[in-house]
Design a protein around this nucleic acid. Structure first.
Ligand SMILES: [Zn+2]
Ligand SMILES: [Zn+2]
Ligand SMILES: [Zn+2]
Ligand SMILES: [Zn+2]
Lengths: 134, 134
DNA sequence: GATGTAGTTGAAAATTTTTTTCGATTAGGA
DNA sequence: TCCTAATCGAAAAAAATTTTCAACTACATC
C-alpha cells in the first residue's frame, strides 16, 4: 500500500496543507476498501462532517481517493491499484478483481478518448451461490 | 423499441396496475435515454414527485428501467438493449456503445455468479477532443 | 354496467444527505 | 516567532428522498 507519507507529499505538492483531519481520514480509508460515509466517519469521530465531505472531495480531486457508485449510497476507497468490483445482490458483500477486459483487449473504434473507466459485476458471491455445483 | 403495450402487460403480469401516471413516465423515458429526474419530471408535470420516485422504483424492479450512476446524480433509461456509456468529462455528453467486453470474452475464474454488469468509460468525446489527430 | 377492494396517488411533513456561511483556528513559509 | 492564506466545524440552508394517510381508481367480479 502506498504509504501515507507519499500521500502527504502529494497533498503538499498541490499547495494544500497536511492537517490532522486529512491524515485521520486517510487512515480510516486505509483500514478497509469501499467504505460508506458512515463507516469512514465512525473511524474518525473527531473529524467534523463538513470537513469529511471536503476532504473526500479534495482527495478525489488529487486522485488519491476514488468515489464509487455501487447501488446503495456513495462509497470511497484509496485509489491504489486499478481493480473492479463484484457486488453480491444476496448478501451485499463487495469484493474486488484485478482482471481488466478494457486494458487487456482495447475496445473497438469508439471515437472517444478514454481516460478512465469503471466496471462492476452484480450477482451472487461464492458463499451465497451455495453448494450448487456449477 | 419495445412497445409500451408490452410494458403494460409486464406491469399487469406482476400484479400491478397500469395507471396513467405510470404510462406517462414511460413515455417520458421513451423520449430520451439516460435522463435525470428533473428531465423526466419536466416531461410529465402531471405526475407527482412521490409517484415519480415510486414509479421509477417499480419499473426498475420489474426490469423495464435501468438506474444509472454516471457521476452526477442518478439517471434513468429504458432497459431495452444492453449497452454501455461513454461520459465526456469536458462537455458532459453521454453516448452509448454496444460492444461488450464482458459478454464477448468472459472474465477469468472469478468464483462469482454474474447476473449483470455495468461498464462506463470516461474521457473526451470526439467533439471535445477537437481536431487533434489521434 | 354496477360494485367492491386492493392497489395507487399526492400534498404535507419528516428524514436524510449535501452544501453554504462565517467566525475561530492552524499549518507552514518567512 | 510572526503572518496569512488555508482550513475547520457549528449552525443554518438547501437539496434529495422517504413516510404518512386520506382520497381516488384500475380492474376483477358479479
Ligand atoms: Zn475496490
Ligand atoms: Zn479496468
Ligand atoms: Zn444508455
Ligand atoms: Zn456489457
Amino acid at each position: 500500500m502506498a504509504g501515507l507519507e507519499t500521500v502527504a507529499g502529494k497533498i503538499r505538492g498541490r499547495g494544500y496543507k497536511v492537517t490532522p483531519q486529512r491524515m485521520a481520514v486517510l487512515e480510516a480509508l486505509a483500514a478497509e476498501q469501499h467504505q460508506s460515509m458512515d463507516s469512514i466517519r465512525s473511524r474518525c469521530p473527531r473529524v467534523g462532517l463538513v470537513t469529511m465531505y471536503r476532504t473526500l472531495d479534495l482527495l478525489s480531486e488529487i486522485g488519491v481517493v476514488r468515489r464509487l457508485d455501487l447501488g446503495d449510497g456513495p462509497r470511497y476507497e484509496l485509489a491504489e491499484d486499478h481493480h473492479h468490483h463484484m457486488i453480491c445482490e444476496s448478501c451485499g458483500d463487495i469484493s474486488e478483481f484485478e482482471e481488466c477486459p478494457i486494458d487487456d483487449g482495447p475496445l473497438g473504434d469508439l471515437d472517444f478518448e478514454i481516460s478512465s473507466h469503471s466496471l462492476e459485476v452484480y450477482g451472487r458471491c461464492a458463499v451465497c451461490a451455495g453448494g450448487e455445483r456449477r
